[in-house]
Simulated assay, not measured.
Amino acid sequence: MVVDLLQVVGITRRFGSHLALDDVSFSVPKGEILGVIGRSGAGKSSLLRCLGALDRPDEGHIVLQGENLTELTQAQLVQARRRIGYVFQHFNLLNARTVAGNIALPLEIAGMKKDVRHERVEELLHLVGLAGQGDKWPSQLSGGQKQRVGIARALANDPALLLCDEATSALDPETTASILQLLREINARLGLTIVLITHEMDVIRRIATQVIVLDHGRIIENGPTRQIWGTTHAVTHALLSDSRPQLPPAIEARLTDEKIPDARTIIRLRVEGDAAWEPFLSAASQRFGTDIALLQGSMVEVGGAPFADLILSLSNGTQGVLDFLSQSGRSMEVTGYVPADY
């Protein structure tokens, strides 16, 4: 039985006349990795502050492990926040403290005894791949190492929920990949529920199992990552544009909605899961006598499964070919038609 660790029910947050969050509702099962994405000003930061009990919504409820955070007193919130870890974009390490000292800070605040605290810090250093580096200073670390310290600090009090605020946007691609791998390992090993706010769709693709798309303070899409990756919603499609293959400009300039004589049919084909490995293009070519040209395409992992996104040119765009390519595990749309001499 799937148990929701976090329930968000109808929260609204206003700043003067500005409506930052508008009747937002969703739930996050225990052990899930939820990605929240949206354009600048969509409400991502406001949502994260509410989830972290750093800000109270004007309306609605946020329930963490059965406890309504919106009804707690300030003293009770101090205790509740210890069940929520926070990973920041710019690390927020204290330069006057060593690596071990930064990780130990929340344990000191919680009143943990020194010997127990030391043992916990060593355990966390090993978990994030920094064993033996507790005596270093933040200035001696790379960006990726600093973020590992930030993750260890966020895990110090053994939280039920980990909130990541653009945790990789200040890192280079290689370091980003290593941090995402670390978060996946932590999620798998500890069963930790993670909510990750980002503007980078590639981060969502690599790590999230569920995705929420925010726009102007409202949820416009909410579902499994593979489902969202194949969306046709205009806002989500725009967010995905840099991560998806695009029709070459020279061909797009000649594209028309009308099927002219001897035209080639341009289609977009998305294939999820094991169906992506099947030789469906050669099968279509042999069965219907059509030649198929790949104009653009990618094969990536989305939500832990293969996902192919292909833009194809067909010499014979009959309904039979289109129906065949639209079979189980594949979604197809006709983009238009171009002259055969494109």
Score class of each variant (00 low, 15 high):
G217E: 02
E221R: 09
R218P: 10
H216S: 14
T225I: 05
W229H: 12
T232K: 10
D242G: 08
I251P: 02
V235K: 12
L239E: 05
H233K: 11
D242H: 12
L240A: 05
W229A: 15
A250G: 02
I219V: 12
L247W: 07
E221A: 01
I219N: 08
Q227Y: 11
E221V: 00
D242E: 15
A238P: 00
A250L: 10
I251M: 11
T236P: 12
L240N: 08
V235P: 09
H233F: 09
T231F: 10
G217Y: 04
L247P: 08
N222V: 00
P224L: 08
I228Q: 05
R244Q: 13
N222F: 15
I220W: 02
I219E: 03
R226P: 02
I228W: 07
L239Y: 02
E221Y: 05
I251E: 08
V235Y: 13
D242W: 06
L239R: 01
D242Y: 06
A238L: 10
Q227T: 15
T232E: 12
T236M: 08
L240Q: 11
R244F: 14
I219M: 06
L239S: 03
H233D: 15
I220L: 02
A238F: 08
W229S: 13
G230P: 10
P245D: 05
D242T: 14
D242M: 01
T225R: 01
V235I: 15
P224V: 09
T225F: 03
T231E: 11
P224I: 06
W229G: 00
T236L: 11
P249G: 02
G223I: 07
P224F: 09
G223H: 01
I220V: 12
A238W: 01
P245C: 06
Q227V: 15
